[in-house]
Design a protein around this nucleic acid. Structure first.
Lengths: 122, 122
DNA sequence: TATAGTGATATACTAAAGTATAGTGTGTAA
DNA sequence: TTACACACTATACTTTAGTATATCACTATA
């Protein structure tokens, strides 16, 4: 029943629904966006802290992705006038809410894994 | 409150949660996977029907993506022994359930869009 | 016999995403 | 004054994703 509702929403399929899905995908797809979101999910962090948090990310990628996330309103960049300047990155409200999407993805991912295991045991 | 629950789920952050999110992302990211899922969401379809459904997809891409979706257990391929053979593609149960994830993505995408509009009007 | 449809595959290419490595300007601590 | 931390940027490169175009074996219809 719940599934049918979802289907009908997509069935109506106005362009803005497709756009909304794409917006969401753009925020979370790519190799580094999720790790970055994960890293600042429980509080603001500085550039180098995030970098230390995420194994193998290069400063180039971190800088590039943070800029993109900021531009898209997912991350807020706070510059403090200390010497030397310190910069903290934080999730916006929207950024925090994405957790709801991630939770659904975890649910689906886990149940899909289970269903595949079941197949293999047949 | 609901948000906090989600956060704590991720906070525990065992490797399999991260894997689950990645599984889900792999199913829906890329240029053609969502259009393909959309095309067969309301019933099985044949190769050429899907191709006609999705503007500008090449047979190479459709073939490649369908294979991948089948391998990942999202799509089922049914071959009928007619002359010439006809092949129908259909979403698996898991494939159908992904709609729940998509719905959440629509919700977040729309509310994020709204929040950004609000910013611009300040 | 020619033409078109079905369900693809092969080869070669371009574009986008990501990596490697080095370097910048500022300040602090030994 | 040497060395290191911070917050990056620049240049060049490789890898992956996606495109373009041609072709295949088969069959049905004109």
């Amino acid at each position: 029943m719940e599934e049918i509702l979802g289907i009908q929403e997509i069935k109506a399929c106005p362009i803005r629904y497709v756009l909304a899905i794409n917006d969401t995908l753009n925020v979370i797809s790519g190799k580094w966006k999720l790790p970055i979101i994960g890293s600042i999910l429980f509080g603001k962090k500085r550039f180098t802290e995030i970098q230390r948090n995420i194994a193998k990310i290069t400063p180039r990628m971190l800088s590039k992705e943070l800029k993109e996330l900021e531009l898209n309103g997912i991350v807020t960049r706070n510059v403090y006038d200390t010497t030397p300047v310190s910069v903290e990155y934080e999730l916006s409200e929207s950024g925090k809410n994405i957790v709801e999407v991630l939770d659904k993805m975890v649910d689906w991912g886990l149940s899909h894994r289970k269903s595949i295991m079941g197949e293999n045991q047949k």
